[in-house]
Simulated scan of single mutants.
Amino acid sequence: MNGTQKEPEPGKSKALLQFLAGGSAGLLELLLLHPLDVVKTRIQLQGVHANPEQLQYSGVMDCISKIYHYEGVSGFWKGIVPPICSETPKRACKFVIYEQFKPLFLFGAPQPTALTHAMAGALAGTLECAILNPFEVVKITQQAYRKDSLNTLNVAGKIIRNDGFGIKGLYRGITALMLRNAIFHFAYFGLYQGLKDELPAYEDRFAEFLRRGAIGFFASIVSSVFSVTFDVAKSRIQGPQPIKGTIKYKWTAPTIWTIYTEEGFRALFKGLSVKMMRAGPGGAILMLAYEYGFEYLTIKYC
């Protein structure tokens, strides 16, 4: 695979292969790891003023136990439809943007550096928010409630009727989402490509597979630590408010400050353990599926 990969012609054919590989990688990662996203969201939504529609969870295992006890296995897959609808095109577009815009961030270097990958990744992660945000709002609304398995279209319709399409409705929390994505993807792509270039590659295909997977795992874990505070703020803004009819969490900075003053510094990292449980394998799966998928498509069709 090293040194024998056939490069597709630049332009539409290469972008198409990146689109297909990125979309497939995103869908695979979602299907395997969505239950952990449900657990993470439930924990992050907890504040000092409990929403009556939500149980309180003392930790990750307590959350998993209560979801299973009260909602059954299907409870772990709440909110799966919006990500399925958004993940394939979103990840596909992200990888195309990431690959196509890397030349803009060479800064005079003959080859892409770790900074090149970080900047291109941050740009791609930020731009995808225009597609992602409405699906995130619907997904978190579905994940927040334990009593019913809420229909996706009904939830979306209710949000639009009550709050509209703008920053009070389907695009609420977009600033927090953009900040989360920019920070996460800057660290993730920068670390992954930087370490992959620095650490020696293996001739053995399985050993090389494990090397790339380990780097993706590590890069995603570190990126989660840097971005989790904005993920908590996003969940609070996009999810059900603690007091019905009153908007407590509206903007990113005030939300972070409110969480800090009411719940302490540790609350800014709520859900980090389960986020890392999801992000580590997710980061490995995503890059492995994308890179090997792209290589396969290149060999087969170019």
Rank of each mutant, 00 (worst) to 15 (best):
K66G: 02
E7C: 06
K78W: 14
V274P: 09
T246I: 05
Q44H: 04
K94S: 11
L33A: 05
A130H: 01
L30H: 07
A120M: 11
M119K: 05
F105A: 12
Y68M: 14
I174Q: 15
G169T: 01
G47W: 03
V38H: 01
D163S: 15
G75L: 07
R236A: 12
F226A: 10
L153F: 09
F217T: 08
M287V: 01
P240N: 01
G283T: 10
L17Q: 00
Y70D: 08
R278I: 02
F101Y: 04
V137K: 03
I159K: 14
K147W: 10
E295A: 02
T41D: 08
S273N: 09
I64F: 13
F186T: 02
A118D: 05
W251I: 14
I159E: 10
G283W: 04
E99V: 01
F95A: 00
I80A: 02
K40I: 02
H69Y: 12
V228I: 15
E263N: 08
K248V: 11
I159R: 15
Y260R: 04
I131A: 10
T258M: 11
R236Q: 09
A50R: 13
V138Y: 10
Q18N: 03
V138G: 06
L286M: 10
L150I: 12
G11D: 05
P240F: 04
P200E: 09
T41Y: 04
Y57E: 15
F189C: 03
R266L: 14
P89C: 12
R161C: 13
K66Q: 10
K168Q: 12
A279M: 10
P242Y: 13
L104D: 15
R278E: 14
F76I: 03
L177I: 08
S149P: 13
F105T: 09
Y57M: 05
E203C: 10
E9P: 01
A176F: 14
G72K: 12
F294S: 00
L199V: 13
A25F: 00
I140E: 04
L286Y: 06
A284M: 02
W257M: 06
V39A: 03
L288G: 00
T141D: 15
T4I: 06
V225A: 10
G23N: 03
W77G: 04
F101E: 05
L199H: 01
G11C: 07
G166K: 07
R161K: 13
K158E: 05
L286K: 01
R236C: 12
T246D: 15
L170D: 06
L170H: 14
Q46S: 06
L115K: 12
Y249P: 02
H69D: 08
F95G: 00
I183H: 12
K14P: 02
E198N: 13
K6A: 07
E262T: 14
P103T: 11
V48H: 11
A120H: 14
Q111N: 04
Y98C: 07
I160H: 11
P281K: 03
F218C: 13
S74C: 12
Y260E: 12
V228A: 14
E128Q: 12
W251V: 07
Y192H: 09
V225W: 03
V274C: 11
R146W: 06
F101C: 05
P281Y: 02
V38C: 00
G23F: 00
P89K: 05
H185L: 15
E9V: 04
G75V: 10
N162D: 11
Y98Q: 06
A284W: 14
H185C: 15
K90S: 04
K248A: 05
K102R: 10
G271W: 02
